[in-house]
Design a protein around this nucleic acid. Structure first.
Lengths: 345, 345
DNA sequence: TCCGGTCGCTGATACGAATCAGGAGACGGT
DNA sequence: ACCGTCTCCTGATTCGTATCAGCGACCGGA
C-alpha cells in the first residue's frame, strides 16, 4: 500500500473538483443529466473528476435513500463452502454467479450472520443484514420459518432456492420438479412390467420430500399400482427389515436420498442380491461422486436453479409494486439407466 | 411477498411507543444503557416496544453512520466458480469465508466487472467497483500489473493471494513458501543418494514459478549438486526430448505443474519406465483428483492462505495510518512419499 | 438558601446520496 | 423597460442511526 491513504471520495469531493454542486454530480452519475438539462460539457467535467478521484457511490448511503446498489445477497442457513458438501452449494453458486455476471450485479455472501452453533440467521442483534443488498437469494435445506415469514412481511425482495411453504407468507421460490420426475420414473418402471414399486423415505420430511412423495403417489395412481411407502429411521434398518420389505414382492425401489441408498445397497449386497438383476433401483437425488452406490438417479438442475433464482429476483426488483410471489419449477432429468431393468422372473 | 406492505418501524417509532427519545432507544439497543445511566425499568420499556413493533435496525443507516460496511471484497481475474477449476478457488474461498465469519464480515464477490472476453477488471469505465467494500482480497494466477499498481497507488486496502511484485507498488500478499518446500525436497532426495536431480518447468514463468526455481537452486547449492533445469514448451516435448534428458543421468525429477507431470508420465510410461523404481518424481503443485498422475506432490495450504489474507486485510483496515505492505509466507507440506525412492542402481 | 453533583434523559447534528423546488442569468418579444 | 421563457444549475431537505453536549430535576452538604 504505497502512498497516502486518502479519505474515500464523496460526491462533494467530485463536485468541488468539477466546479459544480453535489446535486449536479448526483444527476450525472445517475444518468439524469439529459433530463436535468445538464450540457454535455459539464457532464464530461464531472465524469473526468469521477475518474480522477476514483469515486464510487457509498452502498450504505445509496440504499438508505432507497436506491439499489446492484448488489444481490446470497444467504444460506449454514456455511457456504463446507468441505463435505462441496458439490451442493458450488453448483448453485455457479449458476448464481453466471446470471449475476450477465446482468451486471455483484454478489454479497452473508457470512457475518453466523452464530456460535454454526447456524446462520437472517435477523441478528435485531438487524437484518440482508438489507444491504437490493434483494437476496436464500439457499438451504434447513430453514427458519419465522425468519422467512418476517422477511416476507417486511416486503424485502427475495427468492428461495427450493420450494418453501411458510404459513402466512407467500414466498417466491425456484425448485426442481421432483414430483413430475418421480412420477415419470414410476411410469417408466411400470412400462417395463414392474407391478410392485416401493418408495423408501425418511421420517423427518420437508417440502422437497413431500414433492417426491406426491409424485410417487401420482405415478402409482396413473399406472394403477399400489403405494408401497416405507418410512424408515436410517439408524434402525437391518436384515429383518429388508426381509419384511422383500417379502411383499417388490421388484423396484425408489430411494429418497444418498444415505438411504447406501444403507440399502449394503443390505442387498450382504444378501447377495444384485441391482438391477434382482431389483431395479433409482435414487431421487444427485448422488455424490464417492460414498454412494452408483445407481440411476435424478440430475437436479442446480446450476439452472441458481440462474433462474437470480433472474427472478431481478424481475422482482424491477417491479416497484409489491408483486405476488412467483414460483418456478425446473425439469429434473433422470440420470442414466444402469440400475433400471425389467422385473425378475 | 404477501399482505400490506406496512412501513418498517424505525427507532423513532419505538421511541414514541416507549415514551422516550430516539437517542435513548439507540442507547438501549446498542447496549450503552448502563453507561448512559438509563435505569432498568426504562430499558425494559424500550425492549418491550422493540418486540411489539418487531423493530430491526436498518443496516444501511448503521453502516452509513459508522465508517465501514463490514464488507470484504473478493476479486478474481476470472470467473470464481469455473467448472474446470472447482478445487482451485473453492479452497481459497473456504478459508476466506471462515475468517470472515470469525470476524463478522460479509463478502462481496465481484462479478459485475466481467467483460465480454470473460476476464475481470478492477477498473471499468475508469471507476473502481472494489471501493464498494472496505477492502479486498484479490486472487488469480493472471494479473494486470497496471491495475494493481493503480489500486495500490490510490491507497485502497487489499491483500493479494499469491506473491506479486509490481514495479513501483508495494503490495501486501499471502503466499505459500514454495522456495523452502522445493529446497527441502531437493535436500530429501539428496539425502536418499540422488546426485542428479532435474527440474522441469515451463517457459512463461510468473512469480510463483520463480519461487520454486529459487528453492531448487538453493537446494542444489546446499547439497553440492548441479542445477539441471529444463525449460520446456508443453506442446513440443517428445521421445527425443526424453532421451536427451535421461542421457544426462538423472535419477529424480521435480515437475512444475500437473500438465507437465501428465506429459512426462505418459512419456515414461511409453518407455516402460516406472516411478519411483527407475526415477523418483515430485510435482510442485496440488494435484487434481483426476487427470494427473498420482505422484508425490506439494500440499499448497490454500485454506490457510485465504484465512490469513482476510486476517491481514482486517489488520490493514484497523490501522488508520498508511501501513507498509505486509507479506506472509505459509509453509507448504510435501504430500506423501509414494514416488520418492532411492536412486536406481 | 445556595452550590455542586449525580441521574436520566433529550435535542441537535453528522454520515453520503437522491430529489425537488426554485433561482440566477441569458435571450427574445413587445 | 418589462415580461416570459428557457437553460443550467444550487440549496435545502430527506432517509435512519449514532453520538455528544447539555439540561432539568433532585439530593446532600454547608
Amino acid at each position: 500500500m504505497a502512498g497516502v491513504r486518502r479519505r474515500v471520495p464523496r460526491q462533494a469531493d467530485v463536485a468541488r473538483l468539477a466546479g459544480v454542486s453535489q446535486a449536479t454530480v448526483s444527476a450525472v452519475i445517475n444518468g439524469r443529466a439529459r433530463e436535468s438539462g445538464i450540457p454535455e460539457q459539464t457532464v464530461r467535467r464531472v465524469e473526468d473528476a469521477v475518474r480522477q478521484l476514483g469515486y464510487v457511490a457509498n452502498a450504505a448511503a445509496r440504499s438508505l435513500k432507497g436506491k439499489g446498489n446492484r448488489l444481490i445477497g446470497v444467504h444460506s442457513f449454514e456455511s457456504m463452502f463446507p468441505i463435505d458438501q462441496l458439490d451442493f452449494y458450488h453448483e448453485f453458486l455457479t449458476g448464481i454467479e453466471q446470471q449475476a455476471v450477465a446482468d451486471g450485479y455483484d454478489l454479497v455472501l452473508f457470512a457475518s450472520t453466523e452464530s456460535a452453533d454454526g447456524r446462520r440467521h437472517i435477523y441478528r442483534d435485531g438487524t437484518n443484514r440482508l438489507a444491504l443488498a437490493d434483494g437476496s437469494v436464500l439457499i438451504g435445506v434447513e430453514h427458519n420459518a419465522s425468519d422467512l415469514a418476517r422477511l416476507a412481511g417486511e416486503g424485502y425482495p427475495f427468492v428461495h432456492i427450493g420450494r418453501r411453504t411458510v404459513p402466512g407468507a407467500d414466498i417466491s421460490w425456484v425448485s426442481a420438479d421432483y414430483a413430475t420426475a418421480t412420477a415419470d420414473i414410476v411410469a417408466r418402471l411400470a412400462g417395463l412390467g414392474h407391478r410392485r414399486i416401493g418408495y423408501i423415505t425418511c421420517a423427518d420430511r420437508v417440502d422437497v420430500h413431500l414433492d417426491k412423495e406426491a409424485g410417487y403417489r401420482t405415478g402409482c395412481a396413473a399406472a394403477g399400482l399400489p403405494e408401497l411407502m416405507y418410512v424408515i429411521d436410517p439408524g434402525h434398518v437391518d436384515d429383518a427389515w429388508l426381509d419384511a420389505v422383500l417379502a411383499t414382492g417388490l421388484t423396484a425401489l425408489l430411494l429418497e436420498g444418498a444415505e438411504i441408498a447406501t444403507l440399502v445397497a449394503a443390505l442387498l449386497d450382504a444378501r447377495g442380491l444384485t441391482v438391477p438383476g434382482d431389483l431395479s433401483a433409482v435414487v431421487l437425488v444427485n448422488l455424490p461422486a464417492v460414498g454412494a452406490p452408483r445407481w440411476s438417479s435424478l440430475r437436479i438442475p442446480r446450476n439452472e436453479m441458481g440462474r433462474v433464482a437470480v433472474k427472478l429476483l431481478i424481475d422482482l426488483l424491477a417491479d416497484p409494486a409489491p408483486a405476488p410471489a412467483r414460483h418456478v419449477l425446473l425439469p429434473c432429468e433422470q440420470l442414466d439407466d444402469i440400475t433400471i431393468g425389467p422385473p425378475k422372473g
